[in-house]
Amino acid sequence: MANTETDEPCNGFWADTARIRTGYLADVPRHLLVMKLSEEVGEVAEAYIGMTGGNPRKGIHATATDVLDELADVILAAAVPMVDLAGGPDEARRHLADRLGIVAARGTTATNSWHGSFIAPHVLLRHDDGKVLMLRRHNTGYRDGWLCPPAGRIEPGEDVLTAAIREAHEETSVILAHDDAVFCHVMHRTEASLPGPCHAISDYWFTFDRWQGEPRAAEPDKASEALWIDPETPPADLIPHCAQALAAIARGEAFSVHGWTADS
């Protein structure tokens, strides 16, 4: 059975921290102990500047040992209120161990880990003549000048359809009803620039034949114009994965992938 004292990286660290709290820091309010951290972090920066000569007026006036001392003080300054908040030295030690495990696991590719794709709702507003509404991206940092349908991200507490209706309203000013939504496609696509360990997004496409209001580019800082296109003969400046999705929808295909292989 492991000995928690001898296994501690710094033997007796948490017990000593608890004694410091109940000793000369006994009368210091907890909120001041937490605020003390900002002072200690500043002293780390000051020592590092002194070690590297970052201030030309002072030159090099500190050593690596000085920086290490200040870093240690940050750890100690954090440990004291941790004992308070956790409920004691043993609880603080366990919390730090749990947190270390979480942080150490970041970026790993363990076979038993779960990694998810982000979800992006897409909306096709469709006229009686079959044309669908597209927006010309502007000042977004991604495919500016290209066309795409109203689309976006899911906010906390939203399902994908609710998010689609909200995004369509924000981007085109129209009001949509849940009952008018027709699910038509999902595309699982990847690109190196996409976030997360999978670098992937699942695009959910919904078609609406009815809406309230006149569709327009309601966010001029993100879209320069709104225009209707024929989905069967899309313009060359339609974002490629959107063009692929429209073609799949026209064929009645509910699912496609993009970017995973050279021909997808």
Rank of each mutant, 00 (worst) to 15 (best):
V103D: 08
D129T: 00
A26L: 11
I49C: 07
G87F: 11
G59K: 05
D69H: 10
A79H: 07
G59L: 03
T108L: 10
L76V: 14
L238E: 00
V174K: 04
Y48T: 09
A248F: 00
K36N: 15
A248H: 05
P234Y: 00
T162S: 14
A247Q: 07
M51V: 06
F13K: 07
P240H: 09
L161M: 02
G53Y: 02
V44C: 09
D128A: 15
G23E: 10
E39T: 14
N112G: 07
Y24N: 13
A110I: 01
N11G: 11
I20F: 14
D230A: 01
T140G: 10
M82H: 12
A192D: 15
R93H: 11
P156F: 07
H122D: 02
V74N: 04
T111A: 15
A217P: 08
V67M: 05
H185E: 01
D144W: 02
G107P: 03
I229C: 01
A86R: 11
A254Q: 11
R251Y: 00
D66A: 06
A64R: 14
I60C: 06
T140V: 11
M187I: 09
F13E: 08
H185C: 02
L133V: 01
S38L: 14
L76K: 10
S38G: 14
S256K: 01
I239K: 05
D129E: 07
L124G: 00
H199V: 05
N55T: 10
E91Q: 15
A78Y: 03
A248R: 02
Y204D: 02
E191R: 15
T52Y: 00
T22I: 10
E158W: 03
E40R: 06
K131F: 05
C148F: 03
H241N: 14
F13Q: 08
V182S: 11
A254R: 12
C10D: 14
V132C: 03
E225M: 09
G157D: 09
M187P: 03
A168Q: 02
D179P: 03
L85G: 13
R137Q: 15
D73E: 06
H185L: 05
Q244W: 05
T111D: 14
V80A: 10
L227C: 12
A163L: 00
G259N: 08
G23T: 09
I20G: 07
L96C: 12
A86T: 10
L100Y: 12
L125A: 05
R216A: 13
P220I: 07
D230P: 02
P150C: 05
I75L: 13
N3A: 08
P149R: 00
M134H: 05
T190D: 08
E39A: 15
T63N: 08
D209A: 13
T190A: 12
S117F: 10
S38M: 12
H241K: 14
I239C: 08
L100A: 11
A200K: 06
M51G: 01
A226V: 02
T52N: 04
P220Q: 07
T4K: 12
